[in-house]
């Protein structure tokens, strides 16, 4: 009788151990899958100063993935990226301005290696408007793509005083029209000004 009780207890113990093993297997199944993202800097000479890589549903770009600027001609790997869909942004801090490049909806599958390429031509441009007068304030500033038939919104909240300026970063490349409104005299108009990648266009208005 005692033997039977022992056998039953051993059976129960074995069952419990087996059940625990099953639980361990379940944990193993939920281990996330991941891929690799490679950033290739094919710029001719400029380093990439910042690279952000964040899920599409995240409202901020997050931390800089680069520990140091990525020199031209080099690549950088981000390992163990959880599978999902991501947005990417690269920043170049140049001598004259700061420029960005974007790539959206990058799918990272399990075991996948995704390559993102940066070249000279894929960055935004910048525009600087300088008040080149001694005695007049710029009271409104309009910048719209040349394809637009209306001026849309004023870009400044306060007047630009003589010798002051407005520096607009991160403008998509293309042709733009600019209207400068003064507190004295007629408006100054510029048409079809080209905003180019990695270039700062300075317009001294008067």
């Amino acid at each position: 009788m005692n033997i039977y009780i022992r056998l039953i207890l051993m059976s129960l113990l074995i069952s419990l151990v087996t059940a625990c093993g099953g639980g361990g297997g379940h944990d193993y199944d939920t281990t996330y899958s991941s891929g690799t993202v490679r950033l290739e800097n094919e710029n001719s000479s400029l380093s990439i100063d910042e690279f952000n890589f964040s899920p599409i549903d995240q409202s901020i770009w997050g931390t800089n993935q680069l520990s140091s600027p990525l020199l031209a001609g080099l690549s950088f790997d981000i390992l163990s990226v959880p599978t999902g869909i991501y947005d990417a942004r690269a920043l170049v801090k140049g001598l004259f301005s700061t420029y960005s490049s974007y790539l959206y909806d990058i799918s990272v599958f399990d075991g996948d290696a995704v390559t993102v390429v940066s070249t000279d031509s894929v960055y935004t441009g910048s525009l600087k408007i300088v008040n080149g007068t001694l005695d007049a304030n710029i009271t409104a500033l309009y910048i719209t793509p040349s394809t637009s038939s209306v001026w849309k919104e004023n870009q400044i909240n306060s007047d630009i005083v003589p010798s002051g300026s407005m520096h607009l970063f991160d403008i998509d490349t293309g042709l733009y029209d600019v209207k400068v409104v003064w507190d004295i005299g007629p408006d100054t108009l510029y048409y079809n000004k080209s905003i180019e990648s990695l270039t700062l266009l300075t317009l001294t208005a008067s």
Partner: peptide, 21 residues
Amino acid sequence: NAREMSSKALRVKNKTVAAQT
């Protein structure tokens, strides 16, 4: 599998900064 980046901000994330200085 290279994907080239772009200067076009198709889905902009509050990207523009205007410095009046």
